[in-house]
Nucleic acid binder design. Sequence first.
DNA 1: TTAGGGTTAG
Length: 626
Amino acid sequence: MEITTSSSSTSMFQFRQMTIHSFSLQTETLTLPNNNIKKKKATLELKQLPSHSDLHSSLSRVGATLAVKDLNAIMHHFGNSNKFQHISQLFLWMQQNNKLDTSSYSHYIRFMANQLDAPNMLQLYNSIPHQLAKNNVYLCNSVLRCLVRKAKFDTAIKLFQQMKQDGLVPDVVTYSTLLSGCIKIKDGYSKALELIQELQNNKLKMDGVIYGAILAVCASNSKLLEAEYYFNQMKNESHSPNVYHYSSLLNAYSACGDYKKADRLIQDMKSEGLVPNKVILTTLLKVYVRGGLFEKSRKLLSELQSLGYAEDEMPYCLLMDGHAKAGQMDEAKLIFDEMMKSHVRSDGYAHSIMISSFCRAKRFGEAKELANDFEATFNKYDLVILNTMLCAFCRAGEMESVMETLKKMDELAISPDYNTFNILIKYFCKEKMYILAYRTMEDMHNKGYQPVEELCSTLMYHLGQVNAYSEAFAVYNILRYSKRTMCKALHEKILRILLAGKLFKDAYVVVKDNTASISRPATRNFARVFMKSGNINMINDVMKTLHSCGYKINQDLFEMAVLRYLGEPEKKDLLLHLLRWMPGQGYAVDSSTRNLILKNSHLFGRQLIAEVLSKQQVNSRPQKSH
DNA sequence: TTAGGGTTAG
């Protein structure tokens, strides 16, 4: 009987648990006031709600009896049991009922950091009432951390500025959070410097964590001297460096392969009682490889092997890549083979390095072979390996494999990037599949990638050759409206194509927009072709444009225009307009054209023609005297 | 009560 009164979504087992629990509570807390008992009951009910059941209806029933801190405790409970659905429902209810405080927000952010995307996070921060928590440093740090983790550095910085306006007083944690975002972004070093400067202006002291972050930024931006500077300053301020500080500095040495400094650093590290770990030794190997010390590298690799630090492919990859980049493909291949023979754990990096190196060395057959091997061995793909394989198949001319790889990308919903498009367009051009190349470029453009001029120029030319004139013009426009610079000769190139394709109006646009870049002979050719075959309604516009860019219109051109008008008497207004325009610019029709007009003047109205021509004579006399 | 960092490969 009791069971039927409970909510339908509560199982019999849970219902029993609840009643037993509440009973024991009641006996324990007989002295508690009535509403405290109610609270405990409500809390229990909510906490024990199964994840699929409707939290909202329970809340509207018992939520009113609960205080903010009870609700926070419930949220905490949901968080610990990963009930994200319930967390957001509860938080929403708390917002709607105005029952939240600072820690409600910070709990919510902590538990939902992975579920919320950047826009939601921003919206959340903006929804915090001013008097409540907007400038709470813990809360702000959590929000910023979440954005940085999602690689939204610029968003984080913008929000940081807003937070300061809202009254945030940043602390070292705020700065280290933001600094960590500088490691993997373009121009991260200068952004990091700005933050360090601001931190110092705010009279905050740098600590070991901050030094760790700035050292990593220096290392990933090849700022060797700066890394040394921070490392020494850190020591001077009596913060003792740990392995991470050492490995960042060591990594900074790898950029220029400074093995002497690297060796000294390792000694220093040992004398401080730190034991070089796998990462330190692997980074040291990177220094040796970059320094071109292949013998020393081989020795170190053996050392790594005997320490059990060469069980995955990274040290092999470093060495292979080094050999390949030094033009020693056969040495690289030997290491690859050795690695395969001893069954070193691989995620496919080794294949990727070898395939792209073979492509670089124009050994396409071997590249293709390894790409096939990768296909047969691994069942995981990412964009880089797919691009590498595509490159190998394209260069080896394996159309079927190219198409299969593209299909695979599609199935895995891995979107192509700039490299993918570039590889494909080049390949389709090589195979003389120009329309396909064009469609691919269009796709590339729509996805926001800008092809380089050389590729556009080649494709444009070939499209012209196969009479795909408007496609050629589309390629021209992709380049023209991208931010890339453009070679002047390209305008003339597209002009020739457009005239060949009888796309006179487009040709006119090209001429009009690029008068300075188009040579006199090309302009003259355009003008003649347009007068002969272009849209009659635009003849006068073309004349005026040519004139205003300093091109002197000759009699032939006027004669051609007049002939066009004589052929279409209903355009008489245009002819009259041209004739009236000419004297003002110092032009006059020559006698043969003049006779031609007079002979046909019945078509236009004798009176008008005579009047217009008489004005020409008057104005043209001074010109003739020159 | 609540917040922070760092190392290696295509």
